[in-house]
Write a protein that binds this DNA or RNA. Structure first.
Length: 494
DNA sequence: GTGTATAAACACT
DNA sequence: AGTGTTTATACAC
Protein backbone atom coordinates (compact mmCIF):
# COMPACT_ATOMS: atom_id res chain seq x y z
CA UNK A 1 0.00 0.00 0.00
CA UNK A 2 2.45 2.40 0.95
CA UNK A 3 4.24 2.23 -2.14
CA UNK A 4 1.44 3.34 -4.11
CA UNK A 5 1.07 6.36 -2.13
CA UNK A 6 3.97 8.24 -2.96
CA UNK A 7 2.59 9.84 -5.74
CA UNK A 8 1.60 13.10 -4.73
CA UNK A 9 3.90 14.11 -2.26
CA UNK A 10 5.89 16.23 -4.27
CA UNK A 11 3.60 18.83 -4.14
CA UNK A 12 4.86 20.47 -1.28
CA UNK A 13 5.26 23.91 -2.10
CA UNK A 14 6.97 26.13 -0.01
CA UNK A 15 5.00 28.98 -0.28
CA UNK A 16 7.25 31.55 0.03
CA UNK A 17 5.32 33.87 1.83
CA UNK A 18 7.38 36.29 3.20
CA UNK A 19 6.34 36.91 6.47
CA UNK A 20 8.34 38.63 8.64
CA UNK A 21 8.61 35.67 10.53
CA UNK A 22 7.47 37.30 13.33
CA UNK A 23 6.07 35.31 15.74
CA UNK A 24 3.92 37.17 17.88
CA UNK A 25 3.60 35.99 21.16
CA UNK A 26 0.36 35.62 22.42
CA UNK A 27 0.07 37.53 25.27
CA UNK A 28 -0.74 34.90 27.36
CA UNK A 29 -3.98 33.79 26.54
CA UNK A 30 -4.78 32.31 29.53
CA UNK A 31 -2.04 31.77 31.45
CA UNK A 32 0.52 31.38 29.20
CA UNK A 33 3.08 33.61 29.66
CA UNK A 34 5.38 33.55 27.16
CA UNK A 35 8.38 35.28 27.28
CA UNK A 36 8.68 37.30 24.41
CA UNK A 37 12.14 36.99 24.56
CA UNK A 38 12.60 33.89 22.93
CA UNK A 39 10.63 34.22 20.14
CA UNK A 40 11.87 36.99 18.32
CA UNK A 41 14.32 36.27 15.97
CA UNK A 42 15.72 33.24 15.13
CA UNK A 43 15.38 31.36 18.06
CA UNK A 44 18.73 31.34 18.63
CA UNK A 45 19.11 28.17 17.37
CA UNK A 46 21.05 28.45 14.51
CA UNK A 47 20.50 25.17 13.80
CA UNK A 48 20.71 25.24 10.26
CA UNK A 49 23.65 23.49 9.33
CA UNK A 50 24.27 25.72 6.68
CA UNK A 51 24.63 28.48 8.92
CA UNK A 52 21.74 30.25 7.95
CA UNK A 53 20.81 32.13 10.63
CA UNK A 54 17.44 32.44 10.51
CA UNK A 55 17.18 35.13 8.22
CA UNK A 56 15.81 34.49 5.13
CA UNK A 57 18.63 33.29 3.59
CA UNK A 58 18.62 34.67 0.44
CA UNK A 59 15.47 36.18 0.89
CA UNK A 60 13.38 33.27 0.76
CA UNK A 61 12.22 31.52 3.72
CA UNK A 62 12.73 27.98 4.13
CA UNK A 63 9.21 27.53 5.12
CA UNK A 64 6.10 29.39 4.67
CA UNK A 65 6.31 30.72 8.13
CA UNK A 66 9.91 31.64 8.02
CA UNK A 67 13.14 29.94 8.44
CA UNK A 68 12.43 28.22 11.54
CA UNK A 69 11.93 24.58 11.46
CA UNK A 70 9.12 22.91 13.22
CA UNK A 71 11.50 21.75 15.81
CA UNK A 72 12.57 25.24 16.50
CA UNK A 73 9.09 26.48 16.72
CA UNK A 74 8.21 23.76 19.09
CA UNK A 75 11.17 24.59 21.19
CA UNK A 76 10.10 28.13 21.39
CA UNK A 77 6.68 27.20 22.33
CA UNK A 78 7.90 25.08 25.13
CA UNK A 79 10.30 27.64 26.31
CA UNK A 80 7.70 30.19 26.35
CA UNK A 81 5.71 28.28 28.79
CA UNK A 82 6.42 29.11 32.30
CA UNK A 83 6.83 25.65 33.21
CA UNK A 84 8.62 24.77 30.16
CA UNK A 85 6.28 22.13 29.27
CA UNK A 86 3.29 22.01 27.04
CA UNK A 87 0.84 19.48 25.89
CA UNK A 88 0.47 18.81 22.27
CA UNK A 89 -2.68 20.80 22.13
CA UNK A 90 -0.96 23.68 23.77
CA UNK A 91 1.78 23.53 21.29
CA UNK A 92 -0.74 23.73 18.56
CA UNK A 93 -2.29 26.59 20.27
CA UNK A 94 0.94 28.34 20.59
CA UNK A 95 1.60 27.92 16.95
CA UNK A 96 -1.65 29.38 16.00
CA UNK A 97 -1.22 32.25 18.27
CA UNK A 98 2.34 32.94 17.75
CA UNK A 99 3.12 32.16 14.23
CA UNK A 100 1.29 34.20 11.76
CA UNK A 101 1.31 31.57 9.21
CA UNK A 102 -0.65 29.26 11.36
CA UNK A 103 -3.07 31.77 12.56
CA UNK A 104 -5.67 30.88 10.26
CA UNK A 105 -4.84 27.30 10.27
CA UNK A 106 -6.15 26.29 13.52
CA UNK A 107 -9.13 24.58 12.20
CA UNK A 108 -9.16 21.01 12.08
CA UNK A 109 -9.28 21.01 8.44
CA UNK A 110 -6.46 23.10 7.67
CA UNK A 111 -4.42 21.95 10.51
CA UNK A 112 -4.02 18.37 9.81
CA UNK A 113 -0.84 18.63 7.94
CA UNK A 114 1.10 20.88 10.15
CA UNK A 115 -0.14 19.24 13.24
CA UNK A 116 1.01 15.99 11.93
CA UNK A 117 4.34 17.56 11.38
CA UNK A 118 4.42 18.86 14.89
CA UNK A 119 3.75 15.48 16.27
CA UNK A 120 6.24 13.99 14.02
CA UNK A 121 8.87 16.37 15.16
CA UNK A 122 8.13 15.81 18.77
CA UNK A 123 8.55 12.15 18.38
CA UNK A 124 11.47 12.33 16.15
CA UNK A 125 13.79 14.65 17.91
CA UNK A 126 15.53 13.76 21.02
CA UNK A 127 15.48 17.28 22.07
CA UNK A 128 11.92 16.89 23.01
CA UNK A 129 10.92 14.69 25.78
CA UNK A 130 7.60 13.51 26.72
CA UNK A 131 6.48 13.43 30.25
CA UNK A 132 3.44 11.65 31.23
CA UNK A 133 0.72 13.84 32.35
CA UNK A 134 -1.87 12.21 34.23
CA UNK A 135 -3.37 14.92 35.86
CA UNK A 136 -5.18 16.51 33.34
CA UNK A 137 -5.89 13.44 31.80
CA UNK A 138 -4.64 14.65 28.86
CA UNK A 139 -1.89 14.16 26.69
CA UNK A 140 1.61 14.14 27.81
CA UNK A 141 3.68 17.12 28.54
CA UNK A 142 6.36 17.85 26.11
CA UNK A 143 9.49 19.40 27.36
CA UNK A 144 12.85 20.25 26.09
CA UNK A 145 15.50 17.82 26.79
CA UNK A 146 17.73 19.55 29.15
CA UNK A 147 20.47 17.90 27.68
CA UNK A 148 19.65 19.32 24.57
CA UNK A 149 19.19 16.30 22.70
CA UNK A 150 20.20 16.46 19.33
CA UNK A 151 18.15 18.09 17.07
CA UNK A 152 18.60 15.32 14.90
CA UNK A 153 16.81 12.36 15.14
CA UNK A 154 17.00 10.39 17.96
CA UNK A 155 17.89 7.03 18.16
CA UNK A 156 15.34 6.55 20.49
CA UNK A 157 15.10 3.20 21.57
CA UNK A 158 12.47 2.49 23.90
CA UNK A 159 12.50 0.41 26.79
CA UNK A 160 13.71 -2.91 26.37
CA UNK A 161 10.41 -4.17 26.27
CA UNK A 162 9.68 -2.11 23.43
CA UNK A 163 12.74 -2.79 21.87
CA UNK A 164 12.38 -6.23 21.05
CA UNK A 165 8.95 -6.21 20.61
CA UNK A 166 8.94 -3.11 18.86
CA UNK A 167 11.11 -4.36 16.27
CA UNK A 168 9.23 -7.37 15.82
CA UNK A 169 6.18 -5.55 16.05
CA UNK A 170 7.11 -3.36 13.39
CA UNK A 171 8.12 -6.00 11.27
CA UNK A 172 5.04 -7.68 11.84
CA UNK A 173 3.03 -4.79 11.72
CA UNK A 174 4.06 -4.22 8.43
CA UNK A 175 3.36 -7.57 7.55
CA UNK A 176 0.33 -7.98 9.41
CA UNK A 177 -0.31 -5.11 11.37
CA UNK A 178 -1.24 -6.51 14.56
CA UNK A 179 0.14 -5.05 17.47
CA UNK A 180 2.30 -6.73 19.73
CA UNK A 181 1.29 -6.51 23.13
CA UNK A 182 4.46 -5.48 24.17
CA UNK A 183 4.53 -2.19 23.84
CA UNK A 184 4.24 -1.95 26.77
CA UNK A 185 3.52 -0.47 29.34
CA UNK A 186 1.49 1.66 28.33
CA UNK A 187 1.82 4.51 30.04
CA UNK A 188 -1.15 5.19 31.44
CA UNK A 189 -2.24 7.92 29.76
CA UNK A 190 -4.65 10.21 30.56
CA UNK A 191 -7.93 9.45 31.38
CA UNK A 192 -9.94 11.28 29.22
CA UNK A 193 -8.69 11.84 26.01
CA UNK A 194 -10.29 14.27 24.45
CA UNK A 195 -11.25 16.84 26.43
CA UNK A 196 -10.14 20.14 26.22
CA UNK A 197 -6.88 20.55 27.35
CA UNK A 198 -6.29 21.53 30.66
CA UNK A 199 -5.79 24.85 30.99
CA UNK A 200 -2.46 24.87 30.68
CA UNK A 201 0.01 23.78 32.89
CA UNK A 202 0.71 26.89 34.29
CA UNK A 203 -2.48 27.44 35.65
CA UNK A 204 -2.84 26.51 39.09
CA UNK A 205 -5.71 24.50 38.75
CA UNK A 206 -4.47 22.34 36.22
CA UNK A 207 -1.41 21.47 37.86
CA UNK A 208 -2.63 19.55 40.42
CA UNK A 209 -2.28 16.07 39.95
CA UNK A 210 -0.76 16.12 36.83
CA UNK A 211 2.42 15.63 38.12
CA UNK A 212 1.90 12.54 39.51
CA UNK A 213 2.01 10.63 36.59
CA UNK A 214 4.27 12.62 34.95
CA UNK A 215 6.85 11.28 36.84
CA UNK A 216 6.30 8.04 35.73
CA UNK A 217 6.12 8.24 32.36
CA UNK A 218 8.72 9.76 30.63
CA UNK A 219 9.83 8.50 27.58
CA UNK A 220 13.27 8.08 27.00
CA UNK A 221 13.45 9.12 23.71
CA UNK A 222 16.74 9.14 22.81
CA UNK A 223 18.90 10.21 25.14
CA UNK A 224 17.96 9.67 28.24
CA UNK A 225 19.15 12.34 30.06
CA UNK A 226 16.41 14.13 29.24
CA UNK A 227 14.24 11.60 30.19
CA UNK A 228 15.65 11.45 33.41
CA UNK A 229 15.25 14.84 33.95
CA UNK A 230 12.03 14.93 32.65
CA UNK A 231 10.93 12.67 35.08
CA UNK A 232 11.93 14.76 37.74
CA UNK A 233 10.90 17.71 36.33
CA UNK A 234 7.90 16.73 35.82
CA UNK A 235 6.16 19.31 35.84
CA UNK A 236 4.90 20.19 38.58
CA UNK A 237 4.17 18.52 41.35
CA UNK A 238 1.80 20.43 42.64
CA UNK A 239 0.39 19.77 45.31
CA UNK A 240 -2.65 19.91 45.80
CA UNK A 241 -4.17 17.51 44.66
CA UNK A 242 -5.28 14.64 45.45
CA UNK A 243 -2.84 12.71 44.39
CA UNK A 244 -4.29 9.72 44.56
CA UNK A 245 -2.42 8.45 42.04
CA UNK A 246 0.75 8.46 42.90
CA UNK A 247 2.48 5.74 41.72
CA UNK A 248 4.82 7.56 40.02
CA UNK A 249 7.20 8.65 42.22
CA UNK A 250 9.58 6.04 42.15
CA UNK A 251 10.74 7.04 39.00
CA UNK A 252 11.40 10.31 40.14
CA UNK A 253 13.64 9.18 42.57
CA UNK A 254 15.78 7.59 40.34
CA UNK A 255 15.75 10.24 38.18
CA UNK A 256 16.83 12.60 40.60
CA UNK A 257 19.47 10.48 41.64
CA UNK A 258 20.69 9.74 38.39
CA UNK A 259 19.97 12.90 37.04
CA UNK A 260 23.23 13.46 35.91
CA UNK A 261 23.15 10.85 33.71
CA UNK A 262 26.00 10.91 31.70
CA UNK A 263 26.33 9.52 28.49
CA UNK A 264 24.67 6.42 28.24
CA UNK A 265 21.85 7.35 29.99
CA UNK A 266 19.78 6.12 27.41
CA UNK A 267 20.16 2.72 28.34
CA UNK A 268 19.45 3.45 31.78
CA UNK A 269 16.51 5.25 30.84
CA UNK A 270 15.29 2.44 29.07
CA UNK A 271 15.61 0.48 32.04
CA UNK A 272 13.88 2.94 33.91
CA UNK A 273 11.22 2.95 31.61
CA UNK A 274 10.74 -0.53 32.18
CA UNK A 275 10.70 0.07 35.72
CA UNK A 276 8.29 2.65 35.60
CA UNK A 277 6.11 0.59 33.78
CA UNK A 278 6.40 -2.07 36.12
CA UNK A 279 6.17 -0.05 39.08
CA UNK A 280 2.71 0.84 38.72
CA UNK A 281 1.87 -2.23 40.21
CA UNK A 282 3.32 -1.15 43.22
CA UNK A 283 1.39 1.72 43.40
CA UNK A 284 1.92 1.71 46.78
CA UNK A 285 2.17 5.05 47.37
CA UNK A 286 -0.78 6.50 47.86
CA UNK A 287 -0.08 8.85 50.04
CA UNK A 288 -0.87 11.98 50.70
CA UNK A 289 -3.32 14.00 49.78
CA UNK A 290 -2.20 17.02 50.30
CA UNK A 291 -4.27 19.54 50.92
CA UNK A 292 -2.20 22.06 50.81
CA UNK A 293 -3.84 24.63 49.44
CA UNK A 294 -2.20 27.13 51.11
CA UNK A 295 0.55 27.85 49.24
CA UNK A 296 -0.07 26.34 46.38
CA UNK A 297 2.24 26.96 44.31
CA UNK A 298 0.97 28.44 41.80
CA UNK A 299 2.72 27.80 39.10
CA UNK A 300 5.47 28.68 40.67
CA UNK A 301 7.40 26.03 39.84
CA UNK A 302 10.73 27.20 39.78
CA UNK A 303 13.08 26.42 37.30
CA UNK A 304 16.48 25.35 37.69
CA UNK A 305 19.00 25.70 35.27
CA UNK A 306 21.16 22.98 34.91
CA UNK A 307 24.40 23.49 33.70
CA UNK A 308 24.01 20.58 31.76
CA UNK A 309 24.81 20.59 28.48
CA UNK A 310 22.58 22.77 26.94
CA UNK A 311 22.12 24.95 29.69
CA UNK A 312 18.61 24.78 29.40
CA UNK A 313 16.48 25.31 32.20
CA UNK A 314 14.42 22.81 33.64
CA UNK A 315 11.57 23.46 35.70
CA UNK A 316 10.40 21.68 38.49
CA UNK A 317 7.16 22.11 39.85
CA UNK A 318 7.11 22.74 43.24
CA UNK A 319 5.22 20.64 45.10
CA UNK A 320 4.33 21.51 48.15
CA UNK A 321 4.81 18.96 50.21
CA UNK A 322 4.50 20.26 53.49
CA UNK A 323 6.51 18.85 56.00
CA UNK A 324 3.55 18.25 57.84
CA UNK A 325 2.03 16.33 55.25
CA UNK A 326 5.00 14.40 54.85
CA UNK A 327 5.02 13.52 58.34
CA UNK A 328 1.59 12.48 58.30
CA UNK A 329 2.04 10.46 55.45
CA UNK A 330 4.89 8.82 56.63
CA UNK A 331 3.50 8.14 59.84
CA UNK A 332 0.44 6.97 58.49
CA UNK A 333 1.56 4.89 55.91
CA UNK A 334 4.56 3.36 55.23
CA UNK A 335 6.71 5.44 53.60
CA UNK A 336 6.06 5.57 50.27
CA UNK A 337 8.60 6.19 47.93
CA UNK A 338 6.82 8.74 46.22
CA UNK A 339 6.71 11.11 48.84
CA UNK A 340 10.15 11.01 49.19
CA UNK A 341 10.62 11.54 45.73
CA UNK A 342 8.56 14.43 45.70
CA UNK A 343 10.30 15.80 48.48
CA UNK A 344 13.46 15.34 46.85
CA UNK A 345 12.37 16.65 43.71
CA UNK A 346 10.45 19.36 44.81
CA UNK A 347 11.64 21.22 47.50
CA UNK A 348 8.91 22.72 49.09
CA UNK A 349 8.29 25.83 47.93
CA UNK A 350 10.79 27.20 46.09
CA UNK A 351 13.47 27.78 48.21
CA UNK A 352 16.22 27.94 46.04
CA UNK A 353 18.31 25.89 48.01
CA UNK A 354 16.30 23.05 47.77
CA UNK A 355 16.37 23.44 44.31
CA UNK A 356 19.89 23.44 44.26
CA UNK A 357 20.08 20.22 45.63
CA UNK A 358 18.07 19.04 43.06
CA UNK A 359 20.18 20.49 40.72
CA UNK A 360 22.99 18.88 42.00
CA UNK A 361 21.78 15.79 40.92
CA UNK A 362 21.64 16.63 37.51
CA UNK A 363 24.91 17.76 37.47
CA UNK A 364 26.76 15.36 39.12
CA UNK A 365 28.52 13.31 36.99
CA UNK A 366 29.86 11.20 39.35
CA UNK A 367 28.02 8.51 40.12
CA UNK A 368 25.80 8.36 42.57
CA UNK A 369 26.97 10.63 44.82
CA UNK A 370 23.97 12.25 45.26
CA UNK A 371 21.34 10.02 45.73
CA UNK A 372 18.94 10.57 48.32
CA UNK A 373 19.11 8.48 51.22
CA UNK A 374 16.16 6.77 50.20
CA UNK A 375 17.47 6.25 47.05
CA UNK A 376 20.35 4.74 48.53
CA UNK A 377 18.34 2.64 50.55
CA UNK A 378 16.59 1.53 47.73
CA UNK A 379 19.58 1.13 45.89
CA UNK A 380 21.07 -0.69 48.56
CA UNK A 381 18.62 -3.19 47.84
CA UNK A 382 20.11 -3.45 44.70
CA UNK A 383 23.11 -5.03 44.07
CA UNK A 384 24.30 -1.90 42.92
CA UNK A 385 24.98 -0.61 46.08
CA UNK A 386 26.71 -3.44 47.33
CA UNK A 387 28.88 -3.38 44.49
CA UNK A 388 29.53 0.09 44.45
CA UNK A 389 30.47 0.15 47.85
CA UNK A 390 32.33 3.18 47.70
CA UNK A 391 30.00 4.84 45.51
CA UNK A 392 27.17 4.18 47.55
CA UNK A 393 28.58 5.40 50.48
CA UNK A 394 29.02 8.57 49.06
CA UNK A 395 25.60 8.88 48.43
CA UNK A 396 24.89 9.64 51.81
CA UNK A 397 26.29 12.89 52.09
CA UNK A 398 24.61 14.09 49.25
CA UNK A 399 21.49 12.88 50.31
CA UNK A 400 21.67 14.40 53.41
CA UNK A 401 21.80 17.52 51.82
CA UNK A 402 19.46 16.64 49.39
CA UNK A 403 16.88 15.38 51.38
CA UNK A 404 15.93 18.12 53.34
CA UNK A 405 12.58 17.37 53.87
CA UNK A 406 12.66 13.94 53.07
CA UNK A 407 15.42 13.33 55.29
CA UNK A 408 13.78 14.64 58.18
CA UNK A 409 10.97 12.62 57.48
CA UNK A 410 12.82 9.64 56.82
CA UNK A 411 13.89 8.85 60.14
CA UNK A 412 10.56 8.47 61.28
CA UNK A 413 9.48 6.93 58.31
CA UNK A 414 12.20 4.79 57.73
CA UNK A 415 11.47 2.36 60.14
CA UNK A 416 11.08 0.39 57.36
CA UNK A 417 9.71 -2.81 57.81
CA UNK A 418 10.88 -5.33 55.68
CA UNK A 419 7.79 -5.30 53.97
CA UNK A 420 7.59 -1.80 53.38
CA UNK A 421 11.02 -1.75 52.44
CA UNK A 422 10.42 -4.29 50.05
CA UNK A 423 7.68 -2.59 48.58
CA UNK A 424 9.52 0.45 48.33
CA UNK A 425 12.26 -1.19 46.80
CA UNK A 426 10.33 -2.95 44.47
CA UNK A 427 9.03 0.19 43.42
CA UNK A 428 12.21 1.71 43.19
CA UNK A 429 14.12 -1.02 42.06
CA UNK A 430 13.89 0.37 38.91
CA UNK A 431 15.83 3.16 39.94
CA UNK A 432 18.82 1.38 40.69
CA UNK A 433 19.72 1.03 37.30
CA UNK A 434 20.32 4.54 37.06
CA UNK A 435 22.37 4.62 39.92
CA UNK A 436 24.02 1.77 38.76
CA UNK A 437 25.20 3.73 36.08
CA UNK A 438 28.35 3.45 37.69
CA UNK A 439 28.18 -0.09 38.03
CA UNK A 440 27.47 -2.67 35.69
CA UNK A 441 24.16 -2.73 35.96
CA UNK A 442 21.98 -4.11 37.76
CA UNK A 443 19.54 -3.63 35.76
CA UNK A 444 16.61 -4.50 35.26
CA UNK A 445 16.72 -7.79 35.26
CA UNK A 446 15.96 -8.05 38.55
CA UNK A 447 14.10 -5.20 38.74
CA UNK A 448 11.18 -6.92 38.12
CA UNK A 449 10.96 -8.30 41.28
CA UNK A 450 13.94 -8.22 42.86
CA UNK A 451 15.57 -10.22 45.15
CA UNK A 452 15.19 -7.87 47.63
CA UNK A 453 15.32 -10.37 50.12
CA UNK A 454 18.70 -11.10 49.28
CA UNK A 455 19.83 -7.73 49.49
CA UNK A 456 17.83 -6.72 52.22
CA UNK A 457 20.29 -7.38 54.75
CA UNK A 458 22.68 -5.35 53.10
CA UNK A 459 20.11 -2.97 52.51
CA UNK A 460 19.27 -2.67 56.04
CA UNK A 461 22.73 -2.15 56.96
CA UNK A 462 23.03 0.48 54.57
CA UNK A 463 20.08 2.07 55.87
CA UNK A 464 21.35 2.12 59.24
CA UNK A 465 24.31 3.84 58.21
CA UNK A 466 22.50 6.25 56.23
CA UNK A 467 20.07 6.91 58.79
CA UNK A 468 22.51 7.55 61.39
CA UNK A 469 24.44 9.56 59.24
CA UNK A 470 21.57 11.52 58.22
CA UNK A 471 20.24 11.96 61.56
CA UNK A 472 23.41 13.08 62.89
CA UNK A 473 23.81 15.39 60.18
CA UNK A 474 20.52 16.82 60.61
CA UNK A 475 20.88 17.22 64.20
CA UNK A 476 24.03 18.84 63.78
CA UNK A 477 22.75 21.10 61.31
CA UNK A 478 19.82 21.72 63.18
CA UNK A 479 16.66 21.23 61.68
CA UNK A 480 17.37 23.22 58.83
CA UNK A 481 18.70 21.16 56.37
CA UNK A 482 21.37 22.52 54.50
CA UNK A 483 22.11 21.10 51.37
CA UNK A 484 25.45 21.26 50.11
CA UNK A 485 26.12 20.55 46.74
CA UNK A 486 29.43 19.38 47.28
CA UNK A 487 29.90 15.86 47.10
CA UNK A 488 30.92 14.97 50.38
CA UNK A 489 33.17 12.21 50.65
CA UNK A 490 31.58 10.22 53.02
CA UNK A 491 33.20 7.61 54.83
CA UNK A 492 30.41 5.57 54.86
CA UNK A 493 29.58 3.30 57.30
CA UNK A 494 30.31 -0.02 56.97
C1' DG B 1 24.77 12.39 3.57
C1' DT B 2 22.17 15.27 6.54
C1' DG B 3 18.27 17.85 7.94
C1' DT B 4 13.70 18.98 7.25
C1' DA B 5 8.94 18.91 5.51
C1' DT B 6 5.15 16.22 4.42
C1' DA B 7 2.13 12.28 4.16
C1' DA B 8 0.52 8.37 5.91
C1' DA B 9 0.12 3.90 8.43
C1' DC B 10 -0.45 2.13 12.95
C1' DA B 11 -1.14 1.85 17.71
C1' DC B 12 -3.16 3.29 21.87
C1' DT B 13 -6.52 5.54 24.82
C1' DA C 1 -10.72 11.76 17.73
C1' DG C 2 -6.54 12.92 19.67
C1' DT C 3 -2.13 11.59 20.55
C1' DG C 4 2.35 9.25 19.52
C1' DT C 5 5.51 6.62 16.81
C1' DT C 6 7.48 5.19 12.71
C1' DT C 7 8.24 4.76 7.85
C1' DA C 8 8.69 6.65 3.47
C1' DT C 9 9.50 10.15 0.16
C1' DA C 10 11.05 14.53 -1.70
C1' DC C 11 14.07 18.55 -1.39
C1' DA C 12 17.62 21.68 -0.24
C1' DC C 13 22.29 22.07 1.20
Amino acid sequence: MASSLRVQKDQKQPHTHTWAMGIELPSSPTTLTVSPTHIPPALGMSQHPHGLTAHTQGGSRRNAWGNQSYAELISQAIESAPEKRLTLAQIYEWMVRSVPYFKDKGDSNSSAGWKNSIRHNLSLHSKFIKVHNEATGKSSWWMLNPEGGKSGKAPRRRAASMDNSSKLAKVRSKASKKKPPLQSAPEATADSPGSQFPKWPGSPSSRSNEDSDVWNTFRPRTSSNASTISARLSPILTEQDDLHDEELLPSMVYSSASSNVPPTVTEELELIDGLNLMSPSSSVLSTQQSASSGQIQRDSSFSLRSPNAAGQTTTFGNSLFNPVEMSLQSSVSHFSGPQTLEALLTPGSPPPRDVLMTQVDPVLPQTGGRMSSRTLLLLGGQSTQSKMSSGNVRGKPAEQQAEPVGASVLPSTLPITPVSATAAQSVQLGSPPLLSSAGPAPLGLNQDRLPIDLDIDMYMENLECDMDYIINSELMDGEGLDFNFEPLPVPHCQ
